[in-house]
Amino acid sequence: MSRPSIKPKSVLTHTVLILLAIIVLTPFVWMFIASLKTQEDFFSGLFLPAGDGFLGIGWDKLTLDNYRNLFDKGFENALINSLFYSSASALFATFTACAAGYVLAKHRFRGRELVTLVVLGALIIPPTLLIAPSYELLFKLDLLDTRWGLLLPTLAPAFGVFLFRQAVKQSVPDELIEAARIDGCSEFGIFFMIVLPLVRPMIGAFMLITFLGMWNNFVSPQIILQTESKQPLSVAIAQLRGVYRTDYGLLMAATVVSITPVAALFLLLQKQFISGLTSGAVKG
């Protein structure tokens, strides 16, 4: 075997890529370290505070006070709210979208074309167009400042129906459904025992997309929820900034708490997410 030679071109490529990677990652590192520093140390140095510890760094100056302070202010309440809204939305939206997508892909009935057309048409409606009328609708339904008011509109995702319709067409053969029918399997049985297992990758991808979308959603909860005890992280953190503008450590701690759960979830389910992201766009 010949030894792989180091070419100048690949050295250059890696130098550029590593430099870019450092630029991309630096804000994360800065944020994490800032969340462990006192206000005084935040201003004195860019990263770890100087001192006489290992590597000339004042390790003893790092503190968890910002996190303690954050939870003293009841921030865990917002964390629990975010977990609840995101999980509930992911679970139910995936179910409604998958059921509708399957029927539109595999069954013939009067009205199917019309429903499909309306669903596809909805994909081009910019969400900003619905901000004002949705607010008025929730007011009329007496759903403003309620958890239902935030959740219900997220449970009818046209994009999800489109994705599941594609997924069912691609991975569920007609013969399988026909064979199950001949064996006397009920229509619901076919859906739960044959279709769902076959589109599992899309279920994972879409749940993750919906979870992330709800977790990071700011506009809807900001408009709909006024009571502090109902607000998710996205709104709570913006209000925290309004009150504690200059408490940098506290704000950074809040940001770290807010992004860690979704970052962990993403790293766990990376593959599904990226396949879901590109499945609507690129056909092999």
Partner: peptide, 16 residues
Amino acid sequence: MLAPFLVLFVVFMVYP
């Protein structure tokens, strides 16, 4: 199968 989606879709998307 369509109902849960369709009802919410009409109320929270088409109507607004």
